[in-house]
Design a binder for these strands. Structure first.
Lengths: 332, 332
DNA sequence: TTCCTTCATGAAAGCGGTTGCAGAGCAATG
DNA sequence: CATTGCTCTGCAACCGCTTTCATGAAGGAA
């Protein structure tokens, strides 16, 4: 730290190993084509000097930054966090580094943020929610891959990795119906995708012959306070649902917790279903039935895609369905 | 996206504005020294071409990556998340970009991860927890600033930004005592810093003439399940505490929630205190008394430090105390 | 008028790698 | 023995920007 540091460069390694810089570069990037004993000499030199390749320089020269920008509205309390975490780990193990852009909940993303990110020439920009027009055009112009997460839009901008929210709603309706519940209440954020899940639920429920469920909308994303307010209203009301289908685990958790505090038993007096399969759902008492998305799988698909795109660009927009899994627990 | 993209370079902007590349560079980096009307020409050219500076190249040339690596054990359920979020926002607004390294909970950080991060030549590496020896030596050799977060070690490796955990323990003891509670039970993770808080509490409590509090240790970081198990034990036990001082908001939240579900009133039958001032504490019913750390302030101090260090390195290791605030709510 | 500053800009040498191309060495083939 | 085809390595031209140094113009002092 304190001695103005002498940084080791590739040239020095090359000199130490008595080979040309090009060969050292190949040692790192295409190990297969370096002769065994040359490689060994280089390995020793690298080790001995403690060389760490400068990826800034490498990225500049090769036009491969191995950087992925992830835009996320907020970190704490976000339903994406578990997935982002899994994604980061997966991408890391493939040599990609994730830079996080917290865009804030308001729809408009400050374009400075995006510009700063694009300045790093990321190989992909992952967006988790709606993208405003300005940002969208910026991204389009930039030429990076744009990955839309958590949804399968009919016309993806570039690539979408996600699942069908409609199908989730469907599955939830089936599950709830199968378990014998007949008076569901939907507690959902007013976001687009939650809306699609609700739609899926409603249509399926109707097809199953159920009566029109009640619905409560809350702001995006739902908070514990929303859940508490909901239970307040529920207690006060005369016609009670037998199950609450929530737009997120946090909502479900809040509903279940507050219901219990008011003396209701879960699931006998009130069943609860969440969404996201976060630890909150897993560790609640009782554990909450939820819908799991395989975050690691998303990360894997993403790094696969990037590796494949490197060099020859695979230009077809497309959707990758990673599916979901309804995990039945004792809350419903 | 689909047309193999023609990237705009600084040279093109220079040509369009009829100035040399050097001047365009100065326009971005030291705007003050460019003549007003030249600047205007450049601004137009930039706008018209939609130029976004390549920070990879810039960083390489200037040896200023404006990148900060943040090592964090885990993202979901981490007590750091709120702070990290605030930090990211603060750093972003100063032109820094954060890359996140999720190191996993085990103490040993895979050195590949660190190496990959260092390859990007970050200006600082922020570590939130203990660092194993291998990583430490790697960092030391690399010459980047190392920022230890959330603690004020007697001998910081480089720079520490944090607060006194001992003082937090002290403040908690005072608060609890002042409110008239006399039988506290400490529910703490077995981590080093939580241990210091506990120590602070215990010593202060003793100084206040209180009887030796009970203590329960859980794994790091505490989980909801830990909290639930704790309440189970508490219900079964004959000598009950009147207040539970928890090592994290999550624990406090779990304790309060489960206690209520068992029919205890908060705080009359059992008071609860948390740590971290997360939304969980704020939104719980009743809201939970907690200790807030100003994450944004940490981010600010960090970017200040980095700006100051750029160029002439300020070589003194030092500690920056950002303090904390005990936020009294109705749970205690 | 002459000389010295100050201000704004340009020329060019890097920053630390990557990669297309060419060549050396060597075994296999005709 | 000449040719061909491999495998491995080196040369050198970039990648896109920053920054030192030099220069010309303009303004002020002597």
């Amino acid at each position: 730290m304190n001695i103005p540091h002498e940084t080791i460069t590739l040239d020095q390694v090359a000199a130490a190993a008595r080979v040309s810089p090009a060969t050292v570069s190949r040692y790192f990037n295409t190990p297969g084509i370096v002769a065994r004993e040359t490689a060994e000499r280089i390995r020793e030199a690298v080790e001995q000097l403690g060389y760490i390749p400068n990826l800034l320089a490498g990225g500049l020269a090769s036009n491969r930054s191995r950087l992925v920008a992830v835009m996320i509205p907020e970190l704490s309390g976000s339903i994406f966090v578990d997935m982002i975490e899994a994604m980061i780990e997966e991408l890391s193990s493939h040599g990609y580094v994730v830079m996080l852009l917290v865009t804030g909940l308001k729809l408009e993303t400050p374009s400075d943020l995006v510009r700063a990110a694009l300045g790093r020439r990321p190989e992909a920009v992952v967006v988790t929610g709606a993208v405003d027009a300005a940002t969208r055009s910026l991204l389009r112009k930039s030429g990076t891959s744009v990955i839309e997460l958590w949804d399968l839009p009919a016309e993806p901008v570039d690539v979408a990795i996600g699942f069908s929210h409609f199908a989730v709603g469907e599955a939830l309706a089936r599950h709830v119906h199968e378990r014998g519940y007949r008076a569901p209440h939907l507690l959902m954020p007013d976001a687009a995708r939650a809306g699609v899940r609700r739609q899926g639920f409603l249509e399926t429920w109707q097809a199953l012959g159920g009566a029109e469920p009640q619905t409560t909308q809350v702001g995006t994303p739902g908070t514990l306070s929303d859940a508490h307010a909901f239970i307040d209203a529920l207690i006060a009301s005369t016609k009670r649902p037998d199950v609450v289908v929530c737009g997120s685990d946090l909502l479900a958790f809040g509903v279940a917790g507050e219901a219990r505090a008011r003396g209701l038993r879960i699931p006998q007096d009130l069943a609860v279903v969440g969404f996201g399969d976060t630890r909150l759902a897993r560790e609640a008492i009782p554990p909450i039935t939820s819908v799991a998305i395989d975050g690691a799988r998303v990360g894997r698909e993403l790094s696969l895609l990037l590796d494949e795109r490197s060099g020859k660009r695979d230009l077809l927009p497309r959707s990758i369905d990673v599916g979901f899994e309804l995990i039945a627990r004792s809350s419903c």
